[in-house]
């Protein structure tokens, strides 16, 4: 499994795309927001946590269809299904690799982009914490959606549609943590709920993703 994660990382680094695309998209969203809503500092401060979360989520969405599609096309997924690791393990490894190439860089880049949106000084810590806790859920939910649509020729749009409502709880709790953090309120409630959603998704969705992969491979 670790080998599979390392291979995916190597592929992402060599093929470019992996890290760059998501980060560039995140940057574009954050830079365009002030042009759309106006440069008033107070307004930007108010919406900064939400915009940062939304930008990270959309950037994450962008690379989901690559989780399984490339391996499906070149036959690797068939061979992995025959390999001695269970497909559940493959799903976990793939989600982890996706998180390492998108979720983690987005989390690390978010504070820098927060400066552009006048995020209050106290908000940076909680923004990073909430993204670090929430983005793994985005990756594993995305892996499930990618597993559902892997056999489809034009699965990209459908994948976004399927994953969109599944992302709602994570977005709500994650953005709430970031907002309360920025406003100096207590974050414990939404933080625990966010962690709960992530833990539940990590525990259950690999099984659903593996089931969907088995159905799609046959």
């Amino acid at each position: 499994m670790i080998r599979l994660v390392l291979r995916d990382l190597a592929l992402a680094v060599r093929a470019g795309g992996g890290f760059g695309l998501g980060l560039a998209f995140f940057l574009i969203v954050v830079v365009l927001v002030p042009f759309a809503v106006g440069p008033e500092t107070a307004r930007l401060t108010a919406i900064a946590p939400g915009i940062l979360w939304l930008g990270a989520l959309l950037a994450c969405l962008l690379s989901l269809d690559r989780i399984f599609a490339l391996d499906y096309e070149d036959g690797t997924l068939d061979l992995l299904a025959c390999a001695p690791i269970p497909l559940e393990g493959v799903a976990v490894a793939k989600a982890l690799a996706h998180w390492l190439t998108t979720g983690l860089p987005l989390t690390l880049a978010a504070p820098v982009l927060g400066i552009f949106l006048n995020l209050p000084a106290g908000g940076f810590g909680w923004l990073v914490v909430s993204l670090a806790l929430g983005t793994p859920a985005l990756s594993v939910i995305g892996a499930f959606g990618a597993a559902l649509t892997v056999g489809l020729r034009r699965g990209g749009l459908l994948l976004s549609l399927l994953v969109l409502p599944l992302y709602v709880p994570t977005l709500i709790f994650g953005a709430e943590v970031a907002r309360r953090g920025a406003e100096g309120l207590a974050v414990q409630g939404p933080l625990l709920l966010l962690a709960g959603v992530t833990a539940g998704a990590l525990a259950l969705l690999p099984f659903a993703a593996a089931a969907a992969l088995r159905i799609n491979l046959r």
């Binding site: 080998r3 599979l4 291979r7 190597a10 592929l11 060599r14 093929a15 391996d71 096309e73 070149d74 036959g75 690797t76 068939d78 061979l79 992995l80 025959c82 390999a83 001695p84 690791i85």
Partner: peptide, 24 residues
């Protein structure tokens, strides 16, 4: 199983491709 598609990653070298499967 070996099918029509070889499951080879274009970005990896011959040795890396083979070593990946050996370790799997």
């Amino acid at each position: 199983y070996a099918g029509h598609a070889d499951g080879i990653k274009a970005a990896l070298s011959v040795e890396e491709n083979l070593r990946f499967w050996a370790e799997m």
